[in-house]
Amino acid sequence: DETGKFLVLSLYDYQEKSPREVTMKKGDILTLLNSTNKDWWKVEVNGRQGFVPAAYVKFL
């Protein structure tokens, strides 16, 4: 199980638009929880879990 094993870097600021999403700032290091959807990845940032656009992050 690779859940929570990968870190990704936020390339852009992102403001959550729904309760299922999370806000991140450019340069944030996020824990990747799920990347099965090619468009939206589930991450943990600042103690919160939610989705961010996959195009806004990259693997470290």
Rank of each mutant, 00 (worst) to 15 (best):
R48G: 04
Y56N: 05
K26F: 05
E16N: 07
E16Y: 05
L9Q: 11
T36V: 10
N34H: 07
V52R: 01
Q49F: 08
V45R: 11
D13R: 02
L60C: 12
I29R: 05
K5I: 13
R20Q: 13
D39Q: 11
E44M: 09
I29F: 06
D13E: 05
M24G: 00
Q49K: 10
A54S: 14
F59Y: 10
G50R: 02
D39P: 02
D1T: 14
E44C: 11
Y12V: 13
F59D: 06
N46C: 08
W40R: 01
A55Q: 12
G27N: 06
L33G: 00
T23P: 06
R20G: 15
F6M: 13
N37P: 03
R48D: 03
S35L: 08
V8F: 07
F59P: 13
V52M: 03
L30R: 00
E2Q: 14
F59G: 06
G27C: 08
T3H: 14
Y14K: 01
L7I: 09
Q49P: 05
K38C: 11
N37H: 11
V45W: 06
E44V: 08
V57N: 00
V8E: 00
F6V: 15
E2S: 14
L32G: 02
F51L: 09
W41H: 02
S35Q: 10
R48I: 08
V45I: 15
S10P: 02
S18H: 11
N46F: 07
S18D: 12
V57Y: 03
G50L: 03
M24R: 00
K17Q: 14
V22D: 00
V52F: 02
V43D: 00
L9F: 09
D13V: 04
N34S: 13
V43S: 00
N34L: 08
Y14F: 08
V8Y: 09
K17I: 07
K5N: 11
E2I: 14
P19F: 10
P53I: 05
K25Y: 09
V52P: 01
K42E: 15
N34D: 15
V43Q: 00
G50E: 01
V22P: 01
Q15R: 09
P53Y: 04
D13Y: 05
T3S: 13
M24K: 00
Y14T: 02
F51S: 02
R20P: 05
Y56A: 10
T31Y: 12
I29L: 09
M24V: 10
Y12F: 13
E2N: 14
Y14V: 02
E44Y: 06
Q15L: 12
Y12E: 11
L32S: 01
E16M: 12
F6T: 14
K5S: 11
P53M: 04
S10K: 04
Q15F: 14
R48N: 07
K25M: 09
E2V: 14
V22K: 01
G4M: 13
Q49N: 07
F6I: 15
S18M: 08
F6Y: 13
K17P: 04
S18K: 07
L9V: 15
V45G: 06
R48L: 07
L30V: 08
E16L: 08
V43R: 00
F6R: 15
T36E: 14
L7H: 09
F6L: 14
P53G: 02
L9K: 09
K26Q: 10
N37L: 08
K58G: 12
A54R: 11
K38N: 11
E44R: 07
A54E: 01
M24Q: 01
E16T: 08
V57G: 00
L7S: 07
L7T: 08
K26C: 08
K25H: 10
R20T: 12
W40P: 00
L7E: 06
G4W: 12
L11P: 01
T3I: 13
K5W: 11
D39K: 13
Q15T: 14
A54N: 02
T3D: 12
T23A: 07
N46A: 10
P19G: 09
E44W: 06
Y56P: 00
L30K: 00
A54I: 04
K38A: 12
F51C: 12
Y14A: 02
V57S: 00
S35T: 11
A54G: 03
Q15Y: 14
V22A: 05
V43W: 01
L11V: 09
G47M: 04
N37S: 10
N34P: 03
W41F: 09
K25F: 09
V8K: 01
K17F: 04
V57D: 00
A55Y: 09
W41R: 00
N34F: 06
Y14H: 04
I29S: 03
N37E: 10
F59A: 11
I29K: 06
T3Q: 14
V52G: 00
K5C: 15
L11A: 05
K38D: 10
E21T: 09
S35F: 12
N46L: 08
K42A: 08
E21G: 12
R20K: 12
K58W: 09
F6C: 15
L60N: 05
K38H: 11
L30C: 11
L32H: 01
L11R: 05
L60Y: 12
T3Y: 13
L60P: 04
D28L: 06
Q15M: 12
A55N: 12
P19A: 11
T31C: 12
T36I: 09
K42D: 03
A55R: 15
G50C: 03
G27V: 01
E21Y: 06
V8A: 09
T23C: 06
K38G: 09
N34G: 07
V57F: 05
G4C: 15
V22Q: 02
T31Q: 11
S35N: 13
T36D: 15
V57A: 02
D13A: 06
E2A: 14
K42C: 15
T23Q: 04
V22N: 02
L32Q: 00
L9N: 01
F59T: 09
G50P: 00
P19N: 10
K42W: 15
K58S: 12
G27K: 02
L60I: 14
Q15P: 08
F59N: 07
K58H: 09
L9G: 02
E21W: 05
R48M: 08
V22W: 03
W40E: 03
Y56K: 07
P53D: 02
L30P: 01
K25P: 01
F6N: 10
L32Y: 03
T3A: 13
Q15E: 15
V8N: 01
K58Q: 14
L9S: 04
Y12S: 10
S10T: 08
K42F: 15
E21I: 05
D1V: 14
W41N: 00
K26M: 08
F59E: 08
F51D: 03
G47Q: 05
G27L: 02
K26E: 07
V45P: 00
K5G: 11
F6S: 11
L33W: 05
I29W: 05
T36M: 11
V57T: 03
E44P: 00
V52S: 01
L9A: 05
L11S: 03
Q49I: 15
K17N: 10
L60A: 07
T3F: 13
T31N: 08
Y12R: 13
E2R: 13
S10G: 08
Q49C: 10
N34E: 14
K25G: 05
F51T: 01
A54W: 03
R48H: 07
F59I: 15
M24N: 00
V43E: 00
G50S: 01
Q15A: 12
D1F: 14
E21L: 06
K58N: 07
W41A: 04
N34Y: 06
D1S: 14
D28H: 06
K38Y: 07
E16W: 06
K38T: 10
G47K: 04
W40F: 07
K38Q: 11
Y14G: 01
E21D: 05
W40S: 01
E21H: 06
A55H: 12
E16S: 15
P53N: 03
V57E: 00
P19T: 10
S35Y: 11
E2D: 13
G50K: 01
E21M: 06
Q15I: 15
V57H: 00
L7R: 10
L11D: 03
P53K: 04
E16A: 15
L11W: 05
G27R: 02
E2M: 14
T31K: 13
I29G: 00
Y12K: 13
T3E: 12
Y14P: 03
W41Y: 10
L9W: 06
E2G: 14
K38M: 10
T23F: 04
L30W: 02
D13L: 03
W41Q: 00
G50Y: 04
E2H: 15
K42R: 10
G47H: 05
K5F: 13
L32V: 12
S35W: 15
F51R: 02
P19L: 09
T23Y: 05
